[in-house]
């Protein structure tokens, strides 16, 4: 193994939202408008209410889009709500969404963001109060110290 260091990010959640095909872009846009970063969208096939309606089932698109967005704990509720509203999940047959806690995530973090985030805790706390924290500003911990 290389001696490269992996930076773990904690306090992250993943929101999964399943909507009818072609609605995903609206949901992603809404999430980004309230500060979410990236989204990954996949096509999926769903069953459930569609098969129980007889021929009326054709009105519900069999093809679904599955949106996965990783958010920080602080922004999670806000993003969740925005996605719910944009996807119009309060209407019948539109879809479903849920949120899971993540142990950790890892990705590329620009050096300047790293430096800022790993500054003394008090400073970070003060900053967090002033402005909503983004996902990538979570505390940095060296790889070896994090155990189960």
């Amino acid at each position: 193994m290389s001696d490269r260091q992996i930076t773990y990010l904690t306090d992250a959640l993943i929101i999964t939202c399943i909507v009818q095909a072609s609605h995903a872009d609206d949901v992603v846009k809404a999430a980004q408008n309230v500060g979410a970063q990236g989204a990954t969208v996949t096509y999926a096939r769903g069953t459930g209410v569609r098969e129980r309606m007889g021929l009326m089932g054709v009105t519900i698109d069999e093809q679904k889009e599955m949106v996965r967005i990783i958010v920080s704990q602080e922004q999670s509720d806000r993003v969740f709500e925005a996605m719910y509203l944009a996807g119009e999940l309060d209407k019948p047959g539109m879809g479903i969404m849920f949120m899971n806690k993540l142990d950790r995530i890892a990705t590329y973090i620009p050096d300047e963001v790293l430096a800022e985030a790993s500054a003394p805790k008090a400073k970070a706390k003060a900053k967090a109060k002033a402005a909503p924290k983004k996902r990538k500003t979570a505390t940095r911990r060296p790889a070896k110290k994090v155990g189960k």
């Binding site: 992250a12 993943i14 806690k101 993540l102 995530i105 990705t107 590329y108």
Partner: peptide
């Protein structure tokens, strides 16, 4: 993370749940 180089720019991300 290290095998796929996911901590380098523009390569993706990994999470644990």
């Amino acid at each position: 993370c290290s095998k796929m180089g996911l901590d380098s720019p523009q390569s993706g991300m990994v999470f644990q749940m």
